[in-house]
């Protein structure tokens, strides 16, 4: 089967919010591509699809699913996979990505990216699901590393070993969320830089950057929450710079999903990312 490979430009994109529609068309500034959440564009028509069509005439679009539940113990929802296929066929996006997480159980959809243990059993299930997605869509997908708040005592391998094995078995690419790395490393008391150093960066087709909130765990230690509701934190920028230095320039997305700011604020964040991608003048 012909497999469509991801083709996002190696520049900076932003997560599209409808309130920015006119701003983006009038003055996209440094933004060269857009990402949408697939589930917001699964209606039959109306303004959402009309806007998306108009944007897709001007920008490469990345379709980012948040509801496929690839980490489910049970099978993928065939109706939802069919909707994704329809959107992919209609839009022909530059990239399709989903999460290493689950959100659906027993016909209920819980609208969060829920965690799974890393075991031989979950590895096989996730790989089967990714095979099914890639076969159905006729393209390679990217799988995003999660933000972790807790661990499972049953886990028998670390996250990077798990992700590496998934890419080997399925041929999928990875979406590296650098904020998630920082959040998980803080929360699980690991070294974020060592995570990046061990990550299969050659498999990364896209990077995400977003803001997080700060809380405390059961013992008063810092617990970071992946909220996407503010600017990217300084140590995440530092980690991003390290990632680019080590893995080269990648398509990079600014995510801001709650308390969405004015377009100009997103542009400022995008400019900050662009500065990391430009070669340093000699």
């Amino acid at each position: 089967m012909m497999r469509r490979i991801n083709s996002l430009p190696k520049g900076v994109g932003v997560g599209y919010k409808p309130q920015h529609f006119s701003d983006i068309l009038n003055d996209p500034a440094p933004v060269t591509w857009l990402e949408i959440h697939a589930e917001n564009y699964m209606g039959a028509g109306g303004r959402p699809l009309a806007q998306l069509r108009a944007l897709s005439d001007k920008f490469p679009i990345s379709v980012h699913g948040v509801g496929l539940s690839i980490g489910s113990e049970g099978r993928l929802d065939p109706d939802h996979l069919a909707r994704l296929k329809h959107l992919n066929t209609w839009l022909e996006p530059a990239s399709f990505s989903e999460h290493l997480a689950w959100s659906t159980h027993d016909m209920g959809f819980y609208n969060d990216l829920l965690p799974l243990p890393y075991t031989e059993t979950t590895l096989k299930t996730v790989c089967d699901h990714i095979d099914e997605v890639q076969d159905s869509l006729g393209r390679q997908m990217l799988l995003e590393n999660p933000s972790s708040y807790l661990a499972f005592s049953e886990s028998s391998m670390d996250e990077i070993s798990f992700l590496r094995e998934v890419t080997t078995r399925t041929g999928c690419g990875l979406l590296l969320d650098v904020n998630n790395v920082f959040v998980s490393a803080t929360n699980l008391q690991m070294d974020a830089r060592a995570y990046i150093d061990a990550f299969p960066l050659d498999k990364v087709g896209e990077i995400h950057l977003g803001g997080h909130d700060e809380d405390e765990d059961d013992h008063g230690a810092p617990l970071l929450i992946d909220s996407h509701g503010r600017e990217v934190a300084d140590p995440v920028w530092t980690l991003y710079a390290h990632t680019i230095e080590k893995g080269g320039v990648k398509p990079t997305l600014i995510e801001w999903d709650t308390d969405v700011p004015d377009w100009s604020v997103l542009v400022d964040e995008a400019k900050r990312a662009v500065a990391h991608l430009s070669p340093v003048p000699a």
Partner: peptide, 26 residues
């Protein structure tokens, strides 16, 4: 049981992040 923090101990407050995320987002 089996949901733990980095110290391997039970972590109800960490689990409550998901309790909160689900209900707040919905």
């Amino acid at each position: 049981r089996g949901i733990v923090g980095p110290d391997g101990m039970p972590a109800p407050k960490r689990f409550s992040v998901y309790r909160n995320n689900i209900i707040v987002s919905l």
